[in-house]
């Protein structure tokens, strides 16, 4: 069953076409990675799905309903990015309580306890969020992003600037979490190992268009390369000269 379907999605800023009528879909329990060089339209695409940017044309369909006003679905969607922070002056527990209330979680206490357990937040629960290391902050941000058991989770470079150990913790958590919960994940990342490990399907974006797509294996085979990074470099540099 398709959780998210994007049809001819386009965004034009003035004379600049940031996203050029792209099409893709994500099914339940599927992780789709959005890859591409900086400025290729990944963030604009995610922002349109989240309702932060109004598309120029095209449609976003969630659970067979076309989004005209995304409010009805935001309760079942969530987002995490290291570039978006939780209030630094609030303690971790306070941030979790605020967002549990905002997403109207029925048994907030139990949900927070579960997240504390799963993401190992107990040692930092009463610390101010701004005093945490980037790895700890990332875990708290991830906790916020799954506090509502989202049906669609959008992750923008979830392990950017993290040390390999913390990065691995986050990836392992995401793998386990996805197995236990039925959800669709859209992952934007520049970490090719992460994409290879987490994603079921890859969309390669360049200059606002999806220029290629497939499973990691299919893309590597199709382009005759050894890994996804080589495929990325080939596609990113294509027609550059």
């Amino acid at each position: 069953m398709k959780q998210l379907e994007i049809n001819n999605l386009q965004k034009i800023f003035g004379t600049f076409e940031a996203v050029k009528k792209i099409n893709f879909s994500i099914s339940e329990n599927q992780t789709v990675a959005l890859l591409g060089p900086n400025g290729c339209g990944k963030t604009t695409t995610i922002a349109m799905i989240l309702g932060l940017i109004t598309p120029t044309s095209g449609s976003i369909t969630i659970n067979n309903k076309i989004l005209t006003n995304n409010h009805h679905y935001l309760a079942k969607m969530n987002f995490a990015s290291p570039y978006v922070e939780l209030p630094k002056k609030l303690k971790v527990i306070e941030n979790l309580k605020v967002y549990a209330m905002m997403y109207e979680i029925s048994n907030a206490k139990a949900k927070i306890e579960q997240l504390v357990e799963e993401l190992n937040l107990a040692p930092i629960l009463y610390k101010k969020t701004g005093e945490l290391s980037s790895g700890q902050r990332n875990r708290v941000s991830l906790a916020k992003s799954i506090i509502n058991d989202p049906k669609i989770l959008l992750l923008d470079e979830p392990t950017a600037s993290l040390d390999p150990d913390t990065g691995d913790f986050i990836r392992t958590f995401l793998e386990t979490y996805k197995k236990k919960n039925s959800m669709a994940i859209l992952l934007a990342s520049h970490n090719m190992d992460e994409v290879t490990r987490l994603s079921d399907y890859v969309l390669m974006m360049k200059e606002g268009s999806i220029i290629d797509e497939g499973t990691t294996g299919e893309l590597i085979k199709k382009h005759g390369r050894h890994d996804l990074e080589e495929v990325f470099l080939k596609l990113a540099r294509q027609n550059e000269n």
Binding site: L52, N78, S81, Y83, V84, L86, Y99, M102, Y103
Partner: peptide, 11 residues
């Protein structure tokens, strides 16, 4: 606090 996006993507 760079929290606005979290509010705008919430319900």
């Amino acid at each position: 606090s760079r929290n606005l996006i979290n509010l705008f993507v919430s319900p």
